[in-house]
Measured scan of single mutants.
Amino acid sequence: DEFHFHWNGRDIRVRGDSEELRRLIEAIKRGELSEEEIERAIEILER
């Protein structure tokens, strides 16, 4: 699976399928994380 979302003017695409990944992306979409937490998560996910 590939998750695709927009954040902070960026087009983010992440491959993978796990419950943890889904929860993280939902939290990002709901605005539950700080900008710094989101940046760090995206860096890890894009590897």
Rank of each mutant, 00 (worst) to 15 (best):
I28Y: 05
S34W: 04
S34N: 11
E26N: 11
H4K: 03
D17M: 08
H6C: 04
A41M: 09
E46M: 12
R10H: 05
I42S: 01
R23G: 13
G31Q: 08
K29S: 10
G9E: 10
N8M: 08
I42R: 01
E19H: 12
I42M: 06
V14H: 02
L24R: 00
A27C: 03
E19D: 09
E2H: 15
R13F: 14
I25R: 02
G31H: 15
E32Q: 12
A41N: 09
I28P: 00
I44V: 15
H4V: 08
A41C: 09
E43M: 05
D11H: 13
L21E: 09
L45D: 02
R30W: 08
I28E: 01
L24I: 10
D11P: 11
R10C: 03
D17K: 06
L24F: 13
E37Q: 15
E2D: 15
E43S: 10
R23F: 14
I12Q: 00
K29N: 12
A41F: 12
V14M: 06
E46A: 07
R22A: 07
E2A: 02
E19L: 11
L24Y: 05
D1F: 04
D1E: 12
I38L: 12
L45G: 03
E35I: 12
E19P: 15
S34R: 08
I42P: 00
F3T: 02
S18G: 11
I12V: 07
I44E: 12
E35S: 14
R10K: 13
I38H: 02
L24P: 00
I25C: 04
H6E: 06
E32G: 10
E20K: 07
V14N: 01
F5K: 00
N8R: 07
R22L: 13
H4P: 00
S18E: 06
R22E: 06
K29C: 03
N8W: 00
R15F: 08
D17T: 10
I42Q: 01
H4G: 03
S18H: 09
R47D: 15
E32C: 06
E35A: 14
K29I: 07
I25W: 06
R15T: 12
H4R: 02
S34A: 11
V14S: 03
E26C: 08
E37Y: 07
I38Q: 04
L24G: 00
D17Q: 06
S34F: 08
I28N: 01
G9C: 12
I44M: 14
I25M: 10
R47H: 13
K29Y: 14
N8H: 06
G31I: 04
L21V: 11
D17L: 07
E37L: 10
F5W: 04
I42E: 01
I38K: 01
I25D: 06
I38N: 02
I28H: 02
L21I: 15
R15W: 06
W7R: 02
G9N: 06
H6Q: 05
I28S: 02
I25G: 03
D1G: 08
R15L: 11
H4Y: 05
A41S: 10
R13Y: 13
F3P: 05
E46N: 08
E46G: 08
N8G: 06
L33P: 04
V14Y: 09
N8I: 02
E20M: 09
L21S: 12
I42L: 08
V14A: 05
R30N: 11
L24A: 03
F5L: 03
E43A: 15
E26S: 11
F5Y: 04
E35Y: 15
K29T: 11
R13G: 04
I12A: 00
R22H: 11
F3A: 01
R30H: 11
R30P: 01
E2N: 10
L45M: 11
E20R: 05
I12C: 02
E20V: 12
E39Q: 07
G31S: 04
R10I: 07
G16L: 05
I28Q: 02
E37D: 14
E36D: 13
R30A: 11
I38G: 01
E37G: 14
A27I: 10
V14Q: 01
